[in-house]
């Protein structure tokens, strides 16, 4: 007797694998890295007393968003790289795939589990960042009220508030999350054919470097004017395979207080989702034919 009729695509099965993956990562105590993030923010606050209030907010945003970007990326690569090799080594993969679970559902479940972990981490880090920013704002307001003539206080406080929480922070955090999601999908794809998790991590780091440098290298080669047909084809292939990660870097604009164009933001989001889907699809094709 079978429990239920087989479904070719079951969100419940994917949900079971995703929640189990999240539970695994939580019980591996990966959230401890948030403590390091908190320490970085507290540490950076210690150097701020020498700056003007505008500079203080800029430094805090720069350090916090930079740390968020590095931590979410690092977490996505490290957490994803070990999932598949560990399941193969422990033979857990055999027991799961010996149940009526299609390989696509297994991969999707694993990826969604990591994405949930990244979502929780990004939200917690954003909340910590917001609290740090708010506390800094209150300190600066108190200081301003003490040192500014009464008739200028209202104007000064308005200026402080305007340079603390800006709408730009939201797209900034979203692109940080999307970049990490893209890397989770890429790392999952690499781990479907890699023989060890060290290889997976090294390749992911290499893609990170290439992704950040490719636009600069491309601009340099094309601007020099001596790029031949072969170079152009090579550049086209590189920019097709590797995402241009500079597009996901909105931190400089946020720190400088520049407005982020909605069209640019949506294009970056679309690109992130597209690359994540492509990497997942390729991962499936490799994994579907993998001999376990």
């Amino acid at each position: 007797m079978t429990a239920t009729a087989h479904k070719f695509f079951s969100p419940a099965r994917i949900g079971a694998i995703a929640s189990n993956t999240l539970l695994e990562l939580v019980r591996l105590k990966v959230f401890y890295f948030l403590l390091i993030f908190a320490l970085i923010m507290i540490g950076s606050s210690a150097f701020m007393v020498r700056f003007t209030f505008a500079e203080q907010f800029q430094v805090l945003k720069d350090v916090s968003l930079g740390a968020m970007s590095i931590f979410t990326w690092l977490l996505s690569v490290l957490a994803t790289a070990m999932l598949l090799p560990k399941d193969i080594e422990d033979r857990t993969l055999y027991t799961i795939l010996a149940k009526p679970v299609p390989r696509l559902e297994y991969l999707l479940g694993k990826l969604i589990g990591v994405l949930l972990l990244l979502l929780v981490s990004t939200l917690v880090m954003s909340a910590m960042f917001a609290i740090a920013l708010y506390l800094r704002q209150q300190t600066v307001i108190a200081e301003t009220m003490r040192t500014t003539p009464p008739e200028q206080v209202a104007e000064a406080i308005r200026n402080i508030k305007a340079s603390t929480f800006t709408i730009n922070l939201v797209p900034g955090v979203i692109t940080i999350y999307l970049k990490a999601a893209l890397f989770a999908s890429l790392t999952l794809f690499i781990s479907t054919y890699a023989s060890s998790w060290i290889f997976t991590i090294l390749i992911s780091v290499a893609v990170y470097i290439i992704g950040h440098l490719q636009s600069t290298a491309r601009d340099y080669w094309l601007a020099s004017g001596d790029a031949g047909a072969l170079t152009k084809i090579f550049l086209a292939i590189v920019s097709l395979i590797f995402p241009d990660l500079q597009l996901f870097n909105l931190i400089d604009d946020i720190v400088a207080g520049n407005a982020i164009a909605m069209a640019m933001f949506l294009k970056t989001c679309g690109l992130g989702v597209l690359y994540a889907c492509i990497y997942l699809l390729v991962a499936y094709f490799v994994f579907a034919n993998k001999e376990l």
Binding site: A3, T4, T95, V101
Partner: peptide, 9 residues
């Protein structure tokens, strides 16, 4: 966990 993979709820 394994029960959920087999559709049990």
């Amino acid at each position: 966990f394994f029960g959920k993979l087999c559709g049990l709820r």
